[in-house]
Design a protein around this nucleic acid. Sequence first.
DNA 1: GAGATTATGTCAGCCTCTGACATTCGGCAA
DNA 2: TTGCCGAATGTCAGAGGCTGACATAATCTC
Lengths: 226, 226
Amino acid sequence: MAAHTPRPVGTPEDLGRAPGLRERKKQQTRDALVQAAHLLFLSQGFARTTVDEIASAVDVSQRTFFRYFANKDEVALAVMADAEDYFIECLRRRPAEETPLQALRASIVKAWRDLGNARTSGPGSISSALELLRIIEETPALLAAHLRRVTEQERLVVQVLAEREGLDPAEDLRPVVLAAVFGSLLRSAHLSWTAEQEPAGPEGMVTVIERHFDQLGPALAGHWRS
Amino acid sequence: MAAHTPRPVGTPEDLGRAPGLRERKKQQTRDALVQAAHLLFLSQGFARTTVDEIASAVDVSQRTFFRYFANKDEVALAVMADAEDYFIECLRRRPAEETPLQALRASIVKAWRDLGNARTSGPGSISSALELLRIIEETPALLAAHLRRVTEQERLVVQVLAEREGLDPAEDLRPVVLAAVFGSLLRSAHLSWTAEQEPAGPEGMVTVIERHFDQLGPALAGHWRS
DNA sequence: GAGATTATGTCAGCCTCTGACATTCGGCAA
DNA sequence: TTGCCGAATGTCAGAGGCTGACATAATCTC
């Protein structure tokens, strides 16, 4: 097992090659750990769940747990992390005619919709991610780790945007600023989704996100008092 | 000592009352801890500094350290936290004629300038805060904690903005969105300040922040390709 | 100065996370 | 099939963050 095990991301040469037993087992324990952790977090809360519990629920040693995940946070954020990867993929595929802002909006909506239509249960399911989002928001340590992940994702967004528009992010601040704006827009959407009794599920999330996008113009415009 | 010791924030009834010996001593050890931690972090890095080291540098027990700060992160972020409080104060005082965006921009610039002109050394100095910013950015755990703090501050900004403009933040998304945008704008400014060889010190930071503000309009406008 | 408050120290202990080393298991080729 | 190599896992020991409980010492109040 590679040192520190980054999350398995399908490299090009993986495609079409049948993974051996070893790989399959690895994926299996990983999924099992995520799922076990998930269940425990939901039932007992994040803080009151120990790594030992998670590990022994899957019948591996604590040490093995830490070979799959760098820390306890990571296992909680794993599902969200996968979803974010998919979003980046969507963004990469947007047609060049769209403005950067349009492309971002379209990608995030598509990502949620697709994930919503995909597997609807199991460790990688999107409803899992949504339940997790609630736990994340109410657990300071997790929220912190999540926010850090999000800002790292933002760097990727900057890169993709700059590439799309053919400019150098070191020269031009616009991709940086837009990515930042987009990131925080998403976060306030998540926040309002978890806080309010919004329609649950991915489609509810899409609604909330779109509502936030629509407020972007008005928020930046002059005075608010009508 | 109150349980968990939130950072001392001057309550109205404190004003003009001479603090007793006990209070003064508390403030003294707190400052000493911050300063000692600060020096150690700068010389050895955050991770390689133990709480025991910090505590014994000030000649108190480890247990006492944890009565002042909930965790190791907090002592590192203490100076930044004070600066943020001052910013909020500035925002509260902005004239009502300014648009929300103008008020935010003016407050953050004023806050950096004032803090820059105030004590220029010592545990609460602004140059300390700036040095810390570098450490924060390169220490994942600290960055995470910092980001969480920032988003909490954002909630305050939402409140102040909503109050200014006389609207209900639960009804109207504009304060929420603007605060989010502002927060991420600041963060990318910090990032570019720590990354590049920007003019050091508070004034350099002001320059960077203003440059980012100026890009806000262009970033959101249609296509970027000229 | 006596008693009530409050800060500090001490101690024991849980939990997260890591390095080192031994063991077992899957992949692969003779 | 057998045997070897490398990769995954287990075991163990230990550092470091953090907390509750209780005792002690300092300040405050009257």
